[in-house]
Simulated scan of single mutants.
Amino acid sequence: MTRTAFYPKKNRDGTTRPGPYQHLAEEFERRLRTLREAREVVDPRIAQNGSRPRSPNSRNA
């Protein structure tokens, strides 16, 4: 999916219509704003997969 799908589009007559996934961008912005207002800093790597990122020197045991 391209990033342009998250933004509004313009029709030929100049009117605006929502992008097919614009609701996801709005939801993301709402959640990010809520976290910032709560002053919670989230590591995006942890938020994405639910685990801490590995140290580059760690090995699989």
Rank of each mutant, 00 (worst) to 15 (best):
P20C: 03
P44N: 09
L24R: 04
R54K: 15
P53A: 05
R12S: 02
P8W: 15
G19D: 01
S58G: 06
R54G: 06
P8Y: 09
P53G: 03
T16Y: 03
F28E: 14
G14C: 04
E26N: 05
R36C: 07
G14L: 05
P18G: 01
A38H: 12
N57K: 12
Y7R: 12
L24S: 00
N60E: 12
R12T: 02
T15N: 13
R30Q: 10
N49F: 13
Q22A: 06
D43G: 07
D43N: 14
I46F: 15
D13M: 07
T15W: 06
G14I: 03
L32G: 03
G50T: 03
D43Y: 07
R59D: 10
A38F: 04
A47T: 04
R52I: 10
S55I: 04
A5V: 06
N11H: 13
S58T: 11
A25K: 14
N11T: 11
T15V: 15
Y21A: 12
V41C: 09
R17S: 05
M1L: 10
P18W: 02
P18V: 01
S51P: 00
N57G: 14
E40F: 13
P56R: 05
S51C: 11
E40H: 12
K9V: 09
L24F: 03
D43I: 14
A5P: 00
R54M: 15
R52Y: 13
E26M: 04
F6T: 04
E40G: 06
R45V: 06
R59A: 10
E29F: 02
P53V: 03
P20T: 08
N11V: 15
G14W: 00
Q48S: 07
A47F: 04
Y21Q: 13
R12G: 03
T4Q: 12
T34V: 13
V41E: 13
R45S: 08
Q22H: 09
L24G: 01
L32P: 01
D13K: 08
R59Q: 14
R45L: 09
V42T: 02
E27C: 01
S58E: 14
A61Q: 11
T16P: 01
R30G: 05
I46E: 12
R3T: 13
R36L: 13
V41N: 08
L24P: 00
E29H: 00
P53I: 02
R45H: 08
I46L: 10
P8T: 09
T4A: 11
R45F: 10
P44Y: 07
R59W: 14
L32E: 11
R17T: 05
S55C: 11
A5G: 07
T34L: 06
G19F: 02
A47M: 08
R36M: 10
Y21K: 13
E26Y: 03
A25L: 14
R3N: 08
E26A: 07
R31I: 11
G19A: 01
R45N: 15
R17H: 02
A25C: 15
V41S: 06
R3E: 06
D43F: 08
E29Y: 03
T2L: 10
Q22S: 06
V41F: 09
R3I: 05
R31A: 14
R59I: 08
V41P: 00
V41L: 12
S55E: 10
